[in-house]
Amino acid sequence: MATDSPRQATIFDVARLAGVSHQTVSRVLNDLPNVRAATRARVEDAITKLRYVPSPAARALVTRRSRTIGLITTGGAEFGPSSTLLYFNAAARDARWSVFTANMVDWDQNSVRAAIEAFLRQSVEGIAVISGYERAAEAVAGMELTIPLVVLQATPRLGLDTVGADQYGAARAAVKHLLDLGHSAVGHLAGPRDSVDAQERERGWRDELEAHGLATQLMGVGDWTPAAGHRFGLEFDLGAMTAVFVANDQMAVGLIAAITERGRTVPGDVSVVGFDDIPEAAFFAPPLTTFRQDFQRIGQDMLSTLLARINSETVEALPQSIPTLIKRASTQAPR
Rank of each mutant, 00 (worst) to 15 (best):
F100I: 15
I11F: 03
P192F: 02
P192V: 12
T265D: 11
G191Q: 07
E316W: 01
R262H: 11
K49L: 12
E313A: 12
G80A: 03
Q109S: 15
G229Q: 06
D31C: 11
P286C: 06
T48P: 00
Y168V: 00
H212W: 07
S131K: 11
I322A: 15
M219V: 12
R40C: 02
V35A: 12
L71W: 08
T155I: 13
E78S: 13
R27I: 02
S55V: 02
P226E: 06
I72C: 06
P148V: 12
I69M: 10
G220E: 08
D180R: 01
F284P: 11
S123R: 15
R309V: 03
T48Y: 01
G222F: 07
Q199W: 05
I130H: 08
A317G: 05
R264T: 00
S131L: 13
R292I: 10
R113N: 12
R172Y: 05
N34K: 04
G182H: 08
A95I: 00
V273F: 04
A329N: 07
V28E: 03
L149V: 04
L218H: 12
A329E: 11
G132H: 04
P81D: 09
D94S: 14
N103F: 00
R64K: 14
N34M: 02
E78Q: 14
G80Y: 09
S21L: 06
D223T: 05
G274I: 06
L214D: 06
R40V: 01
V151K: 04
A77T: 14
E78C: 04
Q217E: 07
Q320A: 15
A136V: 08
L218A: 12
L238D: 06
K176T: 01
G182P: 07
M302L: 15
I11M: 13
N34E: 13
M251I: 01
T324A: 13
S304P: 00
T101I: 15
D294N: 10
G187N: 08
E44G: 02
R65S: 04
F291V: 08
A211V: 02
R203K: 07
I116R: 10
A243S: 04
T63K: 07
M302P: 12
V99L: 05
P323F: 09
A141E: 15
V35L: 03
A240W: 05
Y87M: 07
T24L: 13
G19Q: 03
Q167E: 15
M1Y: 04
I259C: 02
F295H: 13
Y52Q: 05
D207Q: 05
A170T: 02
Q8D: 11
N103Y: 00
I147W: 01
G76Q: 15
S330P: 02
Y133V: 10
V270L: 15
Q320V: 01
L318I: 09
A211Y: 03
V196E: 12
A41S: 08
S111N: 15
D223M: 05
A114I: 11
T331V: 10
R262P: 10
L234Y: 01
T162N: 06
G80I: 04
G263H: 10
S271Y: 01
A170N: 04
E138I: 02
A9T: 12
S123E: 07
Y168H: 15
F119H: 04
A190S: 14
